[in-house]
Design a protein around this nucleic acid. Structure first.
Lengths: 194, 194
DNA sequence: CGCGACGTTGATTTGCCTCAACGATTGTGG
DNA sequence: CCACAATCGTTGAGGCAAATCAACGTCGCG
């Protein structure tokens, strides 16, 4: 457990006392492929650090279609940010699914907030993560509005070069906001052109 | 100047020493309708608090179309988060335009980061702002993928009930990711139905 | 082996875009 | 204060990217 926590905070180097404070507030969790971290209606109260493996957050709309919000791999944090941070304390409509068996570190958001106040270094690290996540989500909104499905797919492949081993095509389709059929046609077009 | 800075940090109550630290790092800025905070190619290095008025960030894609990323009113912060927080230090492609004459407080991101470290309360406030902004951007991605243009427009009207006095329809269209023509037809459909 | 999950292909539909023209509104200078 | 121009919004006709619906290969796993 200690080495994983050191890994999480590698960029800020905690001393022993600080490390101890963190350790008593986190737990290690193992999840297997296809398992859900969060079940429908359950209210999320934690954030999860990914030590290894791969997960995705998705949600199901009123007509039953899946929409993947993000994929997450080693070094990322994952949670249902909408219900965690959002103003309306509505129940979660988001699912967090394990795509490739993973080892996670779980920490409750309440505890994490306290740690941020007790150990300012942690809040600075957290700010950094939030800022870059925020920027990439803004970028995604722009790309969704600007680019065609094909361009978005090509971008995706470039941004996540090694993710194809793990994720299914319908995961990618639901991330890009298109149907599996459309993705299939796009893939064909691209390989045909070579 | 003092009362505005107090307004910015009203939820955390700075003492005189802290207030002073902030004051020497900020400047008040007045912008008039149609003015740009940021010109093309210019690299942004500051964030702006909106004391009053209304602004929007938008960018122009390769085919010349405008895309509005966000509107901002009193109490909000505005900046070009993609170039400010993003990993690639590319030049800005984003514009920040004043929609309704505004009074802003400008602070350089570098100074702000220092203030966060010197006055932890500020970093906690900042984390809160980031978290809720992050959640609302995630929500927007989901809504863009799930809802029809009409549904998104109705949502927009409900979320920004009093914004219509200031913003043009083509601002709204470019926020929703549709053309002005489509928005016009949607508006007609809605009023006809009444 | 056989079944279910996944991916592909085809035919058709549709929501929104594009292009074009024309009202309506706003602002500005004489 | 009006006249005219520029800006903004509306309407129509036609087109296109992607969705929908349906059927059929293919792969992996119990």
């Amino acid at each position: 457990m200690k080495p994983i926590v050191r890994e999480i905070f590698e960029s800020i180097e905690l001393n022993n006392e600080e490390l101890h404070k963190v350790l008593i507030n986190v737990q290690k969790i193992e999840v297997k492929k296809k398992e859900l971290l969060l079940r429908e209606g359950q209210r999320i109260d934690s954030i999860y650090y990914i030590h290894n493996g791969c997960l995705r957050t998705y949600f199901i709309d009123s007509s039953g279609k899946e929409h993947t919000l993000q994929f997450a791999i080693k070094g990322w944090w994952i949670s249902d940010y909408i219900s965690l941070y959002g103003k309306d304390s509505s129940k979660s409509v988001t699912y967090i699914e394990c795509i490739k068996s993973a080892t996670l570190v779980k920490i409750s958001k309440t505890e994490f907030d306290i740690l941020c106040k007790e150990i300012p270094k942690i809040s600075h690290l957290y700010i950094n993560k939030l800022e870059s996540a925020f920027a990439s989500f803004q970028k995604r909104i722009l790309e969704n509005q600007t680019l065609s499905a094909k361009e978005r797919y090509i971008n995706f492949i470039n941004n996540y070069p090694n993710i194809e081993q793990n994720v299914k095509n319908y995961h990618i389709a639901s991330f890009l906001g298109i149907t599996t059929e459309s993705l299939s046609r796009i893939r064909k077009e691209i390989t045909d052109r070579k």
